[in-house]
Design a protein around this nucleic acid. Structure first.
Length: 827
RNA sequence: GCGAGAGUGGCGGAAUUGGCAGACGCGCUGGAUUUAGGAUCCAGUGGGCUUACGCCUGUGGGGGUUCGAGUCCCCCCUUUCGCACCA
């Protein structure tokens, strides 16, 4: 008979609510612990990924609370974004209505899961009370040169009339209407994240409790590269072309120069070229294929001679200038010095266009590389040759020497470039934060005065699926210039929703504050977040943006901290048959149905037991029966032993345990406490649960083996202690059933707010130890000895073990004893 | 191509500093019991050999270090993830 989980779970959720059991405040008498989960996009339905994410966090929050921490554990909704707008288009429902409805549904399911959030702190980013502060922060950024407007290339869908994010371009086509995406230049708003590139990179080292993998991904994304910028003089011209290189040591091996098709200097360079038309065609072709084909054929290099030459900065020699499709405008300077002997791409290009190849680095100076014999570029370190006065240097030394030479002649300098680009935040969409800017013909770009915030999203808009709905509002874009009062135009772009999520964890600290974005004092108290849990999918973008925000806010004097998240756990995805769960694949497992069938305690216990948090988990329905059975067995064990639990439950009496069974159970209780405690701390919830299962098995074995224990004070108290301990340890995982059983046996208050047990190491010690006895590393028998026996005696006894002696043959070379573990006899 | 992980029973997964591989659960097999439930309880469960005590073998493959290797070192294979012409 299953216990009545539905009734019980509802009962305790209501009790916790009424008592505001998990409310957090700035109580300075206890150490603080900020436990944060990545807030969800409110799709309306919880999916298994959410269940896993929040179960991980909830166990931690409950554990820390019971260990004397003042725990802040909030929840909110990342409520702006495209799905709401699509719902508006498809179902003719306003995004706000759709979103708020979804939030209610989602919140209801989270309540059902029994997560111990402080719901009074809930935040929804789609409300003007929240996005007002996005706008306020934007204005602070704008005033401090962290937000600026610039013409940038973007993905443009003509049919939808909107910009697309890179992820929304699929095989060069618009994800929604399959129209070919154009590259276009548009005036867009950007955040100057590059200003923080160095700090974002360097302080990764301070994040000791982040997964290396995530830090590495961020490092690669920032892509810092140190080198030299060299100025190349165009022959018979005043024009100069700067090029960035990480290999200034190969400067004497340069035999041509390459420029990106988008390079702004090209029109001037080819102005008078007889081949102008051909070059233009090539450039047009290259620009068009950019994103689409560049990904497809990264091997085939193509280019065209511009008809122009440059003079080598140190030798004065004349070399040709090419336009090449593999040179990118948005990295470095958009121009590259080509060294075919020491760069594989240049090598291939030189072969194709029959350009000279000059060896300037060689691995062995007595036996230099021969161009004729080279089948690929030599890119490793070596000795400098054919480089005038730099010959004989190691190439590492030559990097500095050659750069210094260039520097002294005003032809170059040390330089650093980054792969990281500034963060483009403009979106031509409705359901986001309006960018608080007004364009005035006479005053230019003017921020909305802070007193006029928020700039609220208008309702008089049409959702047609084409263009920015904000442009359809007859009123929104009309505004008076804040400076001169003349009629002006309001910005209709909205912000990327990653802006919302870059600081929401600060808003939780004072969600109802109408005076400021967040309370700096509270931020100093609660931040950094002690443990942040979320999907690996956000390893780069969200986590990098949030780190950037905190640093920027710090420099604005609003917070003292430099890193928002102290410890990070990226939980693995929940798959189904090896595939991501998605509506289109029809393989979504609905947690709602499972809650209904098994109860939330079983689901929580199961999902945490199934695999360690960081690992992917391929969903399998069967396993959940195990968790459900486990809880039912505990329920029955408590019911069967109710009398002794009520009688001995609160007893503090300590007893001496005499029998083997008593000693074993007493020890198992402490061992489980130790294991569960340590496993939770290291987030190995699966082994924590197996530890509790072992304790249960020990209790069951004791109850079965020792008849009449109910009437024996020592034994009844021991069983009672064991069961209570089990409930206590289980509570963070299965909070409802444990509260109910706790109450049923006369426990006072909430078990979820009771003190966590410290294990007693003295009870862990045994007076008998079992050793494995090996001969030449192979286990041949076992030896049970008293724990105070000397090493000599143990070695002696080991030889007498029945199955061991026959392998000895009398010639023992060595005996190795590993304390409490084994004896290995080498013959 | 570059970078970072991961390979353990039928399955999910355990294994302190190198120290009895397979904890715990699922599944499966056999048994008990029952107002038949995905119930409960007991026993078994890596492979091979053996009537049995036991023996051999076994953590992707191949070498090595060691009294002893899932764990450390070298080479290879498979696989997942990230980046992908970054000058």
């Amino acid at each position: 008979m299953d216990y009545e989980f539905k009734k019980i779970e509802k009962k305790w959720q209501e009790r916790w609510n009424e008592a505001k059991a998990y409310k957090a405040s700035e109580d300075r008498s206890k150490p603080k612990f900020y436990c944060l989960e990545m807030y969800p996009y409110p799709s309306g339905k919880l999916h298994m990924g959410h269940v896993r994410n929040y179960s991980i966090g909830d166990v931690l929050a409950r554990f820390k609370r019971r260990n004397g921490f003042n725990v802040l554990y909030p929840m909110g909704y990342d409520a702006m974004g495209l799905p709401a707008e699509n719902a508006a288009i498809q179902k003719n429902i306003h995004p706000r209505e759709w979103t708020l409805n979804c939030i209610e549904l989602m919140k209801e399911q989270q309540h059902q899961m029994g997560f111990s959030y402080d719901w009074d702190r809930m935040v929804s980013t789609c409300l003007p009370e929240y996005y007002k502060w996005n706008q306020w922060i934007f204005i602070q950024f704008f005033k401090n040169d962290l937000a600026y407007k610039k013409k940038v290339p973007i993905n443009w869908c003509k049919k939808c009339g909107t910009v697309l994010a890179n992820e929304q371009v699929i095989d060069g086509l618009c994800w929604r209407c399959d129209t070919e995406v154009e590259e276009k230049e548009l005036e867009q708003w950007l955040f100057n994240i590059r200003k923080y590139a160095d700090e974002l990179l360097d302080s990764l080292d301070d994040l000791k409790e982040w997964p290396e993998k995530v830090k590495l991904m961020q490092k690669n994304w920032i892509g810092k590269s140190v080198g030299t910028e060299i100025i190349f003089q165009v022959t018979d011209s005043e024009l100069i072309i700067p090029a960035f290189t990480t290999r200034p040591d190969t400067l004497f091996g340069v035999t041509y120069l390459l420029m990106a098709a988008e390079h702004p200097m090209i029109p001037e360079l080819i102005e008078n070229s007889p081949e102008k038309e051909k070059i233009d065609t090539f450039i047009a072709k290259t620009k068009k294929k950019s994103r689409i084909d560049r990904l497809a054929d990264t091997q085939d290099k193509d280019g065209i001679f511009t008809g122009r030459y440059f003079n080598h900065p140190l030798t004065g020699e004349k070399f040709p200038i090419f336009v090449a499709d593999y040179v990118l405008m948005d990295y470095g300077t958009g121009a590259v010095m080509a060294v075919p002997a020491h760069d594989q791409r240049d090598f291939e290009f030189a072969k194709k266009f029959d350009l000279p190849i000059r060896v300037v680095i060689t691995p062995d100076k007595d036996n230099p590389l021969r161009v004729e014999e080279m089948e690929e570029a030599y890119v490793d370190p070596g000795m400098v040759v054919n480089s005038d006065k730099f010959d004989g240097m190691t190439n590492e030394n030559a990097k500095k020497a050659i750069t210094n030479e260039l520097k002294s002649k005003g032809l170059g300098d040390f330089s650093t470039t980054y792969r990281l680009r500034d963060w483009l935040i403009s979106r031509q969409r409705y359901w986001g934060t309006p960018i608080p800017i007004i364009y005035c013909d006479s005053c230019g770009i003017v921020p909305v005065p802070e007193d006029d915030l928020p700039v609220v999203l208008p309702d008089d808009v049409k959702f047609t699926g084409e263009g920015n709905p904000l442009d359809t509002s007859p009123t929104f874009s009309k505004a008076a210039c804040p400076e001169c009062g003349e009629p002006a135009r309001r910005e209709t772009d909205t912000m990327d929703t990653f802006v919302d999520s870059s600081w929401y964890f600060l808003r939780y600290l004072s969600p109802d504050d109408s005076e400021k974005a967040f309370d700096s004092e509270k931020a100093d108290f609660w931040l950094p977040v002690d443990h942040y849990i979320g999907g690996i999918t956000h390893a780069i973008l969200h986590l990098l943006y949030a780190r950037f925000f905190i640093k920027a806010l710090r420099d604005l004097g609003l917070t003292k901290i430099s890193e928002p998240f102290k410890r990070l756990t990226t939980q693995g995805m929940v798959l189904n048959n090896g595939e991501v769960m998605s509506k289109s694949k029809g393989n979504v497992v609905d947690p709602g149905k499972l809650i209904d069938k098994f109860g939330t305690d079983s689901i929580r216990t199961f999902i945490l037991f199934a695999a360690p948090p960081e690992k992917e988990y391929d969903w399998n329905d069967d396993g959940i029966f195990g968790a459900s059975r486990f809880l039912n067995r505990i329920w029955n064990m408590v019911s069967d032993n109710k009398e002794i639990l009520i009688k001995y439950g609160k007893s503090e009496t300590t007893y001496r345990y005499e029998t083997k069974e008593e000693k074993q159970l007493a020890r198992a209780i402490e061992a489980a406490t130790k294991q569960v405690t340590e496993s939770i701390e290291s987030l190995h919830y699966n082994t924590a649960i197996s530890g509790m299962m072992e304790l249960f098995n020990e209790l069951r074995d004791f109850i079965t083996a020792v008849s009449g224990f109910q009437t024996n004070d020592v034994q009844a108290a021991l069983v009672s202690k064991g069961i209570l301990r089990l409930l206590s340890l289980l509570n963070p995982f299965a909070p409802h059933i444990t509260e109910e059983l706790w109450e049923a046996i006369g426990g006072e208050g909430f078990i979820s707010l009771s003190d966590w047990h410290k294990y007693d190491p003295s009870l862990l010690a045994t007076d008998e130890i079992t050793l494995a006895v090996q001969v030449n590393g192979k286990v041949r028998g076992q030896l049970v000895v008293s724990s105070d026996l000397s090493e000599e005696e143990i070695k002696e006894q080991a030889q007498q073990v029945p199955n061991v002696s026959k392998f000895l043959n009398g010639n023992i070379r060595k005996i190795i004893y590993v304390k409490n573990r084994l004896v290995n006899i080498v013959v």
